[in-house]
């Protein structure tokens, strides 16, 4: 629960855990850590009411580097721990830190189910399209033909789109940001925190050692604007160096056209409450989808979808006729000594 007046004010400095950060130099994880630390003090929680729970991977070392409560658990299972914690301690601000392998390979099952349950937690998915910690194997988000130690002749598995999977499973908040966009990351984290329910933030994250090229097109200042489209509620999807391109809906399909060539009625105006559109946005990078639209679509960045939905723990507590707490002696006596009553 947010405390209007925090009794334990803390600053970004207080969040230094004193542990030496051990990511590779220039790893995108640093930038993410920095933005999370930046926004935490302003969210209104006291420091001891914030918990970071991670799985296993480079990204999952995150909790060690931030002075809050933290739990570095096992591979793929962080959402289950977060669920158990949030259900029993709804007043805490619970954050899950996970990687693409952690969340979508070994933890794929939990990923689906946490989305449909919708506990009020935030999930930061560090997507570097590779297994960092185990030294560069292919991940569920690696593109086809990626050459890695386990796929020396190129990967043949088609990648999955995390946000599409999440929306398919009933996610109530799905957003994407990029480790290079400091302000955008901060804004997205704030929005995730404000959302009542499970907020999934996919962060494109640079693994300099094992997947240096992965996000070249969106990192490069010269090509970035051509390849990213910023989502803002109520705004049309314009992009390009001079905002000269638009996403236009033609025969129900999104196509890239020159801004002036799109009739006003067909212009894609971003509506984060529209699940149909969100499902399309989540597929923009999918080669099969691009083929079907005949357009090279840009990477949408921002909140794709958001919906009000009673969080899991609220519904659970709502079904109890006595508040969650120790079993009382009276309850037990009534059950164990039925003849007396």
């Amino acid at each position: 629960m947010r405390e209007e007046v925090s009794h334990h004010h803390f600053t970004v400095k207080d969040l230094d855990s004193g542990q030496e950060v051990r990511w590779c130099p220039a790893c995108g994880d640093y930038a993410i850590l920095k933005q999370v630390k930046n926004i935490l003090p302003e969210l209104g929680y006291s420091q001891e009411n914030i918990v970071f729970i991670s799985g296993i991977g480079c990204s999952s070392r995150f909790p060690y580097y931030i002075e809050t409560y933290g739990f570095h658990s096992i591979h793929g299972r962080a959402p289950t721990l977060a669920t158990g914690l949030k259900v029993t301690r709804p007043e805490l601000s619970v954050w899950v830190i996970t990687g693409d392998g952690d969340a979508l390979a070994i933890g794929g099952n939990h990923f689906l189910h946490v989305m449909r349950r919708n506990p009020d937690i935030n999930i930061l998915l560090f997507n570097n399209q590779i297994y960092g910690l185990t030294k560069g194997q292919v991940s569920p988000t690696s593109p086809v033909d990626q050459h890695t130690p386990t796929t020396p002749r190129g990967s043949i598995d088609r990648p999955l789109a995390p946000l599409a999977v999440a929306l398919g499973a009933g996610a109530t908040f799905a957003a994407r940001t990029i480790d290079r966009l400091q302000n955008h990351m901060a804004d997205t984290f704030r929005a995730a925190d404000r959302h009542r329910g499970t907020a999934l933030v996919e962060i494109y994250q640079h693994c300099v050692v094992f997947n240096d090229e992965a996000f070249q097109a969106i990192y490069d200042k010269n090509t970035r604007e051509e390849n990213i489209v910023l989502l803002e509620a109520g705004q049309p999807l314009f992009f390009g160096k001079n905002n000269e391109k638009a996403i236009c809906l033609e025969e129900g399909k999104p196509r890239v056209v020159a801004r002036n060539d799109c009739e006003t009625g067909r212009l894609w105006i971003h509506d984060p409450t529209d699940i149909g559109k969100a499902l399309l946005l989540a597929r923009f990078e999918d080669p099969a989808f691009q083929e079907s639209t005949g357009s090279e679509l840009p990477t949408p960045v921002g909140v794709l979808y958001q919906k009000e939905q009673t969080p899991y723990e609220v519904s659970i507590h709502g079904q109890l006729s006595r508040p969650y707490g120790p079993v009382t002696a009276e309850t037990l006596e009534r059950l164990m000594f039925p003849k007396k009553t």
Binding site: T80, T83, G84, L85, R89, H110
Partner: peptide, 15 residues
């Protein structure tokens, strides 16, 4: 696996 995970999360919170 999820069941024991949730149990661990709840134990971590003091239940």
């Amino acid at each position: 696996i999820a069941a024991i995970g949730a149990v661990m999360g709840a134990a971590y919170g003091g239940s």
